[in-house]
Structure formats: structure tokens, C-alpha cells
Design a protein around this nucleic acid. Structure first.
Length: 376
RNA sequence: GGGGAGAUACCAAAGUGGCCAACUGGGGCAGACUGUAAAUCUGCUGGCGUACGCCUUCGUAAGUUCGAAUCUUGCUCUCCCCA
């Protein structure tokens, strides 16, 4: 796995690069559609390639471990084969579930005990077995097992949590180095920076993870409820420390404006459920702002959903039709919106990349962020 | 022609003397959603008011009562059964 950077000097930290994997090149900055349970909900792989122009998608260790389970994934020959996706895959380690399933889990030094949300059965994730699971899934990029504390975490908790995440990272790395890929393609392991909203903890964490010679680094624990400005500040602090010649992945972020601001601060990779989840719930992202497709004002708007979209559905179907589908609870509404939103997100980062290479990113970004804040 | 049942808000449907501006569901309107336990969740849905509240509503007209969607009578309409 190799990362090459190519960009003109600008008054921004934005970078354009290419991350080469055994399943193909990823042009950064990139947005990675979330495909938690071995599917980007509502979108065919064919359309992810031709319409959305996705270059890499996510999977989730927690969900895939529970269903279909490791035996099936292993016998299928890994997630690429199982789901018929031949481009890169990144898997989250289950660290985020350690946070989001707070009601039914217990964190110890060893790892995290949790109850399955499917059948209540008890399981244990450890830094070691999470690596094993991601080996079986066959992700091109595996994530370290971390704890993602809530936005309002106290300083004392943040320190304790960070120390645990660091100890877990060391164990992840040791186990990573002692194990081999199962399907013949290289698998990277990305460490995750934590530290809540404390500058010194973030800086310390960035230093700590930088000591591991990883192919890329992730910034976790942001966009969990803190103000956007605070998130941007943390990104700046962290990116001052992380190696410049490796990709930086901001986990779980975010709105189109969040992404542009993070690119401006040197982030290369993003993922977020917003384009798909919000899309399923009737929300569309466009260059001019967001639209709630359930709103009455679209009832008789017979113009295309978005005539400039890469998604054929957004060019062919009208707003009035999509509103009707949403109001009627038709599954096609979710499919159209998911494809549209993902295509927009990918176009957003693709145009950002062009502007970075032009050396005109900063100026362009400021104008677009203003435009994106609209509510249509 | 004879007998029976019923009319409640956009729809359906509870309520059968005061705790009823009226349960609940649907529909409608709006909002939320950031490493997906989410095709989910929340709020509003007679009028005016931020609110205490006030006003007008349970087919229609009259009546009983301190008080009526609820009881009585007339009328109108609907449905079912028998001829």
C-alpha cells in the first residue's frame, strides 16, 4: 500500500493524493460510503461504481461478526467475494459500537463485553480478536480497536479512556504483525487518535500513534456532539503532529461543510452515514443546500431532482415524483435518495481534489461552504 | 310495507351525565439524524394566544339538568334483515 501526494501550494493544508491498494487506487480526498452489514443500503454495487463513483466502501466488524458470522465470511473467501465488491474495503473495528451500544456493554482492560443487539447473546471483543475478525473479512484497511468517548466526557475519563485506547492499539499492532492476510492481498492497520476535545490529549495521542509505522492514521471521537468549531480545532492540533506523507482518515464525518473544512485542515479520507441514512429519511444534499423531500412545497415541482447530478435517477425523476415516493413510503425513494446523496458526496470531494491540484481550493471552499448552509 | 342498528374532528374509531376540545390508529404538516441496533425517531394536527386561558364543536331542532357528545322528543339521512 502506497500513498503519493500531488498538490500545489495554497494557503490551505488541503492535499490531493492517491492511495494504492491491491484492489485499486483511491484518489484523495475521498468519501467512503458506509456499508455496515455488507451492503451500502439500497444501492447496487453496479451503481456505486457507475453513478456514485465510489472507490472504497466501509464494512463493520461488529455487524459482520454477528451476522453472517466469521465461518460464512471465511468460507465465502472474505467480504469482497461474499458481497461481489472488487474495489477496496475498510472495516471499522467495532470501536464505535463500544460507544454507541453503551446500554449493553462493559469495558475492561481485556476488551469489551457486549450483548448482541440481534439476539442478546454475550460476546467479547478484544484488540486481538478484532484483528483476527478483520483478517477473515479481508478488509484492505483494518481499524484499530478503540474506545470512542462521548463529547461531554470529563477530563479524568478522557485521560483514562485514551490510555486504554493506546494500550489496545499496541496489542492490535502486535497481533497484526503476528498474523497474515488470508486471501493474498495486503491489509493495512490504521491506528486511531482519540483525546476528546482536549488539545493536549489530542496532541499526545497523535504523537503516540505516529510512533507506529502505519500506512495511514485515523482521527476518531469527533462529531459526537461537540460544536463543529471544536472539532475543527482538534483536527488542526492532530494534523500538526501526524506524518504528512500518510493518509489521514476522519472517522464518521460528516456534513458536506464539515468535510470541506476538514479537507482544508489536511484530512484525506471520510465516511459518514448521513448520505444514506438521511437519504432514506427523505433528506437530499445538493450544491445549494439540503432539501426535505417530504415537504409540501415539492408536491407539484416537476423539475428534475438535480439536473447536474451524476446519478441518473436524479436527472430523470422529478422532485414531485420523489416527494410522492417518500410520502408513500416506497422503497424506491430511499434508493434514489441514497444514490443521489452518495453521488453528491463523491462529486464534492472530487471537485475539491481538482481545486487542490489547481491551487485554488481555499477560495473555492469558502464560497461553497456558504452555499451549502442553505435549506431549500 | 314491517322490524332493527346507527350518525363523533380529513378518514376510521373510542367515549354513553361533570376528570372531554374529546382515547387510539391512519392520513396530513414540520423537525431530527455525523466510524448505521435507524426505509427510523420526535412534535403538532378545531380557532385565537408564548402561556394561564377564552371561543366554537360530537347529524339537526327543541327540551331535561347546576352541568349534555352522553338523557328525552321531533326531524333528516345512512346501513342491515324480512316482505
Amino acid at each position: 500500500m502506497k500513498f503519493t501526494l500531488e498538490y500545489k501550494a495554497d494557503n490551505s493544508r488541503a492535499r490531493a493524493g492517491v492511495l494504492s491498494t491491491d484492489h485499486g487506487d483511491i484518489h484523495t480526498p475521498i468519501f467512503m460510503p458506509v456499508g455496515t452489514a455488507a451492503t451500502v443500503k439500497g444501492v447496487f454495487h453496479r451503481d456505486l461504481k457507475s453513478e456514485v463513483k465510489a472507490e472504497i466502501i466501509l464494512g463493520n466488524t461488529y455487524h459482520l461478526y454477528l451476522r453472517p458470522g466469521l465461518d460464512i465470511l471465511h468460507r465465502a473467501g472474505g467480504l469482497h467475494k461474499f458481497s461481489a465488491w472488487d474495489k477496496p474495503i475498510l472495516t471499522d473495528s467495532g470501536g464505535f459500537q463500544v460507544f454507541s451500544l453503551a446500554d449493553c456493554r462493559k469495558i475492561t482492560e481485556e476488551g469489551c463485553k457486549f450483548s448482541s443487539h440481534i439476539d442478546g447473546s454475550k460476546h467479547l471483543f478484544t484488540p486481538e480478536n478484532v484483528i483476527d475478525t478483520q483478517r477473515i473479512i479481508g478488509a484492505d484497511i483494518m481499524m484499530a480497536f478503540d474506545e470512542c468517548p462521548p463529547a461531554m466526557a470529563e477530563r479524568s475519563y478522557a485521560e483514562k479512556s485514551l490510555a486504554l485506547t493506546h494500550r489496545w492499539l499496541k496489542r492490535c499492532y502486535n497481533h497484526y504483525e503476528q498474523t497474515e492476510p488470508l486471501y493474498g492481498h495486503f491489509q493495512a492497520l490504521f491506528p486511531i487518535v482519540q483525546g476528546c476535545v482536549f488539545r493536549d490529549l489530542r496532541s499526545e495521542s497523535a504523537k503516540y500513534v505516529s510512533d507506529f509505522d502505519a500506512k495511514g492514521y485515523a482521527i476518531g471521537g469527533l462529531a459526537v456532539g461537540e460544536p463543529a468549531e471544536q472539532m475543527y480545532e482538534m483536527i488542526e492540533v492532530v494534523n500538526e503532529v501526524l506524518p504528512t506523507d500518510r493518509p489521514r482518515y476522519l472517522m464518521g464525518v460528516g456534513t458536506p461543510a464539515n468535510i470541506l473544512e476538514a479537507i482544508d485542515r489536511g484530512v484525506d479520507m471520510f465516511d459518514c452515514v448521513m448520505p444514506t441514512r438521511n437519504g432514506r429519511n427523505g433528506m437530499l444534499f445538493t450544491w445549494n443546500g439540503t432539501m426535505n423531500m417530504r415537504n409540501k412545497k415539492w408536491e407539484d415541482d416537476f423539475t428534475p431532482i438535480d439536473s447536474t447530478s451524476n446519478s441518473f435517477a436524479s436527472r430523470q425523476y422529478t422532485k414531485a415524483y420523489l416527494r410522492h415516493l417518500n410520502i408513500s413510503g416506497e422503497m424506491l425513494a430511499a434508493q434514489i435518495a441514497s444514490m443521489h446523496n452518495l453521488a453528491f458526496y463523491l462529486e464534492l470531494v472530487s471537485v475539491a481534489r481538482e481545486k487542490i491540484i489547481d491551487g485554488t481550493f481555499k477560495q473555492w471552499k469558502d464560497g461553497i461552504v456558504n452555499q451549502l448552509s442553505q435549506r431549500l
